[in-house]
């Protein structure tokens, strides 16, 4: 899996990047016409750590992930560490679910593009917990949770070192959400993955994120969950009362 976006730099192109970081951005701005989505965003993500991205709807969370993979034009710099391989799990697909494509077809296509052997499909299926008979169904017949697992499996085929997840548990029932969160956490631990994830569930961010990046129309903030997820700051970001449960383990 190569990474060949035009405006990207990898650490080979610049000597300034810290060896411990998987990603560094500085003064990152995205605008659509006259509409500024966010400006002057600078943060870094250490290798093997996880970054939770929070903020109200329309604050540019998905836009940020898409800018990071080079799908959107931006100003500023995005530096990925040398040799980074990105697995991206998009939130919504612009795809009709009634097409006669099975989970196996999807994974096989991804495997071929990544020049992997077909046997990788079964290992990835096992990893994310998709039984073979489910993978052989067409995608339209899968449940929300099964389809999300398939998308994560899809991202894992390229053997990524960084996983970008855009609300991976959206549209999944609560037990399914818990299993998906555990899955991502397990993958991160076992494979040393760097994870960037968007979530509306602040308790999940509190539990799983090493750092939090918050985006809103008026301000951005970056720091440890304990520093960021305070009632005062959340009120400023979301513009109202926000409550969440902290599960201390």
């Amino acid at each position: 899996m190569r990474f060949n976006a035009d405006r990207m730099e990898t650490a080979t192109a610049t000597k300034l990047m810290s060896a411990e970081n998987a990603l560094e951005t500085s003064h990152l701005s995205v605008r659509f016409g006259d509409n500024r989505v966010f400006t002057d965003l600078s943060f870094s993500v250490a290798k093997g750590s996880s970054l939770g991205i929070i903020g109200p709807n329309g604050a540019g969370k998905t836009v940020l992930l898409r800018a990071l993979i080079g799908s959107l034009p931006f100003k500023g710099t995005v530096r990925w560490s040398a040799g980074v391989r990105i697995g991206y799990v998009p939130q919504k697909l612009d795809l009709e679910r009634d097409i006669p494509i099975t989970g196996v077809d999807f994974l096989r296509a991804r495997t071929a593009v990544a020049h992997k052997s077909i046997t990788d499909i079964s290992s990835v299926e096992a990893l994310v917990g998709i039984p073979r008979q489910v993978a052989q169904q067409t995608i339209g017949t899968m449940s929300g949770g099964q389809f999300q697992r398939l998308l994560i499996a899809f991202a894992l085929v390229g053997d990524p070192s960084v996983l970008l997840l855009d609300e991976p548990t959206a549209g999944v029932d609560e037990p399914g959400q818990e299993r998906l969160n555990e899955l991502v956490r397990r993958l991160q631990k076992d494979r040393g993955l760097t994870v960037l994830f968007i979530s509306h569930d602040l308790s999940v961010v509190y539990r799983f994120a090493d750092n939090v990046l918050c985006l809103s129309r008026t301000q951005t903030c970056f720091g440890r969950p304990r520093q960021i997820l305070t009632p005062d700051l959340l009120r400023e970001i979301y513009g109202g009362e926000v409550s969440y449960h902290v599960h201390e383990h």
């Binding site: 899996m1 990474f3 080079g70 296509a109 991804r110 071929a112 593009v113 899809f154 991202a155």
Partner: peptide, 18 residues
């Protein structure tokens, strides 16, 4: 056909796949 399928699933994902 495989690249076309990946691109159909998501152009963003296709980009990260090179």
């Amino acid at each position: 056909r495989n690249s076309l399928i990946v691109m159909m699933v998501s152009p963003d994902v296709a980009r990260t796949a090179g």
